[in-house]
Every structure is written in structure tokens, then in C-alpha cells.
Amino acid sequence: MAELKTTPNIAYADDFYADLLAVHEGLSEKESEALNARLILILSNHIGDREALGGALALAATPK
């Protein structure tokens, strides 16, 4: 079990952010929502660790 990382962890963050926007380009709102849902599931499985996932859910639900 591992705690959720909340310090910067992605090299070239601007590149990743651009990639994230790029996969949504030209999609309808519904298609984008579906893509986001798939992405969340794929990333969640990759993380696997329930403590980290729980931390991510809690942080996303109350971002402040």
C-alpha cells in the first residue's frame, strides 16, 4: 500500500497536458466523457494500490 503522490511526478508536464487535450480534440461532449471514463479505469488499474486510489478519489472529490 502506498500513499497518493501529491508532488510533481510527470517529466515534461506541459507535453503530457498537451497530449491529454489532443486525444479529446474533435470529440463531442459525450465522446469525451466516455474517453475520460476509459482513461480513469485504465489508470486506476495501472495504479492498483487501493490506498493511493482512495487518496485520489478523496482529493478529486474535495480538491481544496
Binding site: E33, A34, A37, R38, I40, L41, I42, N45
Partner: peptide, 23 residues
């Protein structure tokens, strides 16, 4: 609507991705 979006995403992924099948 969001429940359905996630549900359909699981089903969509399950066909070719083993990881989604337990869901």
C-alpha cells in the same frame, strides 16, 4: 448518466482488455 458512462466504458474495455473484466 455518469453511472452509465462508466458502465459502458467498462464493457467497451472488457472486450479486448483483461483488466476490465473483473469489473
Amino acid at each position: 448518466k455518469m453511472d452509465r458512462t462508466f458502465r459502458d466504458a467498462v464493457l467497451e474495455l472488457a472486450e479486448t482488455n483483461e483488466f476490465a473484466r473483473p469489473m
